[in-house]
Design a protein around this nucleic acid. Sequence first.
DNA 1: ATACGCGCTTTT
DNA 2: AAAGCGCGTATC
Length: 703
Amino acid sequence: VSDSQRIQVAIEAPAHSSLSDLLDYSSEQAVPLGSLVRVPLGKRVVLGLVWGDASFDAGDDSPPSDVAIKPITEALTALPPLSGSWRALLDFCAAYYQRSTGEVAVSVLPPELRKLDQAGLAQRVAKWLRAEDKRVAHESALTPVVLPELHAEQETALAQWALLQSELKNAATDSTTVLLHGVTGSGKTEVYLRMAADVLQNGQQALVLVPEINLTPQLEDRFEARFAQYKIVSLHSGLTPVQRLKNWVLAHLGQADLVLGTRLAVFASLPRLGLIVVDEEHDPSYKQQDGARYSARDLAVYRGHLEQIPVVLGSATPSLETWQRSQEGRYRCFHLPSRIGQAVLPKVRLVNMAQQPKVKNQAVSVPLLHALQQRLAWGDQSLVFLNRRGYAPVLHCTDCGWKSACAHCSAWRVFHKLDRTLRCHHCGSTDRVPRACPDCGNLDIAPMGRGTEQLEEQLSALLPGARIARIDADSVRGKGALQTQLGAVHAGEIDILVGTQMVTKGHDFRRMSLVAAINPDTSLFSSDFRAPERLFALLQQAAGRAGRDAEHAERSEMWVQTWNPQHALYRALHQHDFAAFAGAQLQERQSAALPPFAYLALLRADARSAEAARAFLQAATALAQTQDLAQTYSVTLCAPVPLPVARVANAERMQLLIESRSRKALQAFLARWLPLLHEVRSQQSRLKQPILRWAIDVDPLAI
DNA sequence: ATACGCGCTTTT
DNA sequence: AAAGCGCGTATC
């Protein structure tokens, strides 16, 4: 028995690797759980978190007797330890998404922390503290703001909120999640603001999550304007490492009152957390797509439950998972069914393309063109939306049939006319457009299909004099380009805005009275069962860009060009009837045993050849069958299939779907199965059939 | 993950 | 001979 403490430290090691992620170290001083420490690991010194006390626990996770326990390098005492509930959130996240605790816990800390030692950190913390003191002193002199008047529905929602708060205070409920179902323009943000104000007045912190970095500046402005006396910080990957560390530290010390951020902010350390808002909760951006594939929305719900604080999920088109839970009464539901002021929802017009005369290669039908001309005459703005950037999705030779295939992917390279390139949107490979067909030398190579560049070109030709701008990932490359272009739209310098789905999210265009979707049908027949849900949300959200003030609302229209005007999805859109759409979808999901009535995981394998990827997945399936795991936990394994785009950057991609009626059973199955897969991998590398990588995606969004 | 050693190849 | 790289092994 020595007089030094023995502790378990979480370090950044992947799950199920030969190295456990909780390593034992000794420390002369007592270090409380949750402390940040720097520890020797081989020849390196790495950042770790104290996760357990190993002094009297010699269980299976203690190290073999022949390894010497090293002392920690130092404890980073300049920062208080991470709380028990923070660690519980990370423990849950790691277990649920089948990663190691240390990997997840360390990776969600600001990256800059890894570089600092105790001295450097202490210096940083002391310096930012001083700067903040000055700022707060300066700002507290500001004048109070005038609150906008609430409409009846907002009042009702806030009355329900007050009830929830008092129930939570008296421990009369443990149901903490609320769906705020409000159409676009119904004043959801004002409701968030009032809820946040309530929480801040209680001396608590609020966390507000948004799907995209692009949306943080405008929301930050709005919160800043309302809460001048409180400290607001943002957390997202667009910040510089030093800014991100600073904001994280302010939150962790309890000095920031309100944190606004993207999905990674769900892990912010918030010692006095009193509210989590997840705006546009249905948005797929909340799902991390690599590493630990967590859903920030689902983790927010879990965190709210852990800490017994309200979580508000806001959307006009909730995810069917959320909608189902609100229908079952597991989530409370606050409704905001109408728009602010006299504004009404835009009228939805479906253009039956089958009945339109074919005008050579024209993207815009005659009636839509007339509607655009009408807006020009009124001086209104229009938004024309096409989810395909570039000039044309493929280039082909009219003589020999050559097409612009990507050499590394099973996809066509997209023709970008502006910079005369062929670009693969999957692997990024780029070349100049050939003068002639590379196969037969024919000079006549032609674009097939249409992208936003071509749409912009056609509209300019059809509507001479109209001021047309294009916003997509290509046109806003470079810092601040998006804000500049949006500024031009807001200033009324633009009549027609052409864009991809980037322009359909969140922006408040005041003079817009027409939104048109050029060709949304493609996702109607996708193999992904969530495609209709996504399409409905996208079109509804796009429609929400029109008629945001009363003056334009009356004549606002959402146009959809379609070959399937009788499709149930479009009929529901036409009626603005989300409930009907969701009901029909949920019925289909139930009979097909799909989420939210079943739980899924996806095992993905990438290899040089499709055979190698398939062999790995088949070996994985065999292991589940021979060891009786699949039967024991009643999970179903489907046959391995290639991804819709099978080859990307010379990697063949296959996946295997795992389904279960029970979330618990699926979890237990994965926990037993995944360690076996690591063995398969090493076996296969001995047999010279190596797979490049594999990954498990729990609750996958796209299948 | 990351570091490093070992044996093999390629380069000087 | 020196430098380069693909594995295999160890990390409390």
